[in-house]
């Protein structure tokens, strides 16, 4: 599904140039659950942003579903993104002014799903995440665990082929964290490819494969049995 080759990303300020990704090559197959680990500043988040088409690489190739997307325009990336990729963040990133239902509905609006279909799909996914009873609440009225469920609901409502999760349990206690990991595992078992950045060895164990990064390069790959 994903193949990156010799990917490079630099951050430049006036005097300093920092290499975030250094000729990185990774391949992820459809249906895989991959965890990316490494110390702060190793390039995990940069990689995830490029994979999610939120950012573009400076050098190298990024093939998504057989299409070279490394140098797509912002509009093209946005278009490809909204149909194929769901995001889950450490800090949930829900819109405070929208209710649970409206937050989850958002991706469907941007992909032009008709209103009646949207209601059906949002209710379906809220039900699945067991937060249907909170549909009219605002994010700040929910616990951290509930907020992350909403965020996952929002990530999957459009039935994306790929879910990118950036430390999805980072802001949660262990019990809520485990629930979230169970949810991701269920999604993966239903066929969704998942790439997750994490600091937690515990969470990484839910994946099929761990890629360890250091200074923008792969240093080790563990296959989980």
């Amino acid at each position: 599904m994903i193949k990156i080759t010799n990917l490079e990303k630099f951050y430049r300020t006036e005097e300093v140039e920092t290499i975030a990704l250094n000729k990185l090559s990774i391949e992820v197959k459809t249906g895989e659950f991959v965890a990316i680990m490494g110390p702060s500043g190793c390039g995990k988040s940069t990689l995830l942003n490029i994979l999610g088409m939120l950012d573009d690489p400076d050098e190298g190739s990024y093939v998504f579903n057989g299409i070279e997307v490394a140098h797509f325009t912002e509009r093209k990336r946005a278009d490809l993104r909204k149909h194929n990729i769901g995001f889950v963040f450490q800090s949930f990133n829900l819109i405070d002014e929208l209710t649970v239902f409206e937050n989850v509905e958002l991706p469907l609006i941007y992909t032009g799903v008709p209103s009646s279909e949207r209601v059906k799909r949002v209710e379906e996914v809220l039900d699945k995440m067991q937060i249907m009873h909170r549909r009219n609440h605002y994010p700040q009225q929910l616990s951290g665990g509930q907020q992350q469920r909403v965020a996952i609901a929002r990530a999957v409502v459009n039935k994306p082929k790929l879910i990118l999760a950036d430390e999805p349990t980072g802001n949660l206690d262990s019990s809520n964290g485990n629930d979230v990991m169970e949810l991701l595992t269920d999604l993966n078992e239903q066929g969704t490819t998942i790439i997750m950045v994490t600091h937690s060895e515990h969470d990484a164990r839910y994946s099929h494969r761990i890629i360890r990064l250091l200074d923008g390069q792969t240093v080790m790959e563990n296959i989980m049995i």
Partner: peptide
Amino acid sequence: AKEVGVRKVSGASRKT
């Protein structure tokens, strides 16, 4: 800003 980010991640283009 966060709202704009979330919307963009959810599929909004700059135009929308």
